[in-house]
Design a protein around this nucleic acid. Sequence first.
DNA 1: ACCAAAACCGACCGCTTCGGTAGGATTTCG
DNA 2: CGAAATCCTACCGAAGCGGTCGGTTTTGGT
Lengths: 162, 162
Amino acid sequence: MLFSTKAEYGVRLMIELGRQPGSTPISLNSVAEAEHLPLSYLEHLVAKLRKAGLVTSTRGAHGGYRLAKPATEIRMDDVVQALEGQIAPMECFHETPEGRVLCSHEDDGAGGCATKLLWTRVQNGVTKALAGTTLAELVEFSTPHPQPAAEARAKAPVVHAL
Amino acid sequence: MLFSTKAEYGVRLMIELGRQPGSTPISLNSVAEAEHLPLSYLEHLVAKLRKAGLVTSTRGAHGGYRLAKPATEIRMDDVVQALEGQIAPMECFHETPEGRVLCSHEDDGAGGCATKLLWTRVQNGVTKALAGTTLAELVEFSTPHPQPAAEARAKAPVVHAL
DNA sequence: ACCAAAACCGACCGCTTCGGTAGGATTTCG
DNA sequence: CGAAATCCTACCGAAGCGGTCGGTTTTGGT
């Protein structure tokens, strides 16, 4: 398996936040119920998202989480990376700040390790897939509701189909 | 990490076999020394490659392993899959014989799980990268020897630079 | 002032995989 | 026969995964 359920759950969480249009924070508890996920586990995941600056939190009663920026500006590679850690196909792959890909045992005289070509291609494939997808796309994809009656939503305890 | 060292070691092993042009089998021991990998561990990996029909073995003294078909016909998705098992971005992804991708919890009324779009894209990216690379490419990439004097090679105990 | 709701934090736990080792059995060539 | 090799099974420490638990802190409502 390429990714663990951390990515799955975390992305689901982000989508759930992305569904809420307003700026009212959403409690983890409601997310947990909506997605049928264990609350305590989500706490760990949302902590990573918060530290990565993808969500903001407000504490106390009626507190909860909100997206830190509009869903259209959230790229999924940032989300997955926050949840799973550095995304590299192989142990020996580091990424420099400028996006250069390096292999740690480049000292073997014969022009770098033979597998580098392969892993570089894989890395490109994954990165393009993730970076080319925004949270907004996933939100759209998950709710085929063109115009959800944009009114009367300020106080209603929103219960979405799922 | 997307893949473990099983893929790394196994691919290195395949490359090592691909370097040998003739049909003389290569012992695991020589591969282990050339690549500085533990022999006992390689045994496990090569077993998977053999069961997948990617290499053939001959037992007894002067035995060893050979590629089961020419390197140009070996696609790296088969190699990696043999070593790492089914390649799917997420637990819930199965692939039907026809190549259809399925998510196991497709029962959630709202048109399948929201993350499916993302994981499908990732899967495509990885699969294209792996399936679009042949072992021959990696062999070529690893040895910048245009014409290695194709003669006088039948008995020489080939020691390659690495 | 108090209570409940919520975010926060850290420890723990059973399980599986990973990377590797060990010891043997079997086959084959010289 | 003996050495070289494949083959097979079991085991082992470490790490990560998925999850639970108990507690602390912050905050709004009454």
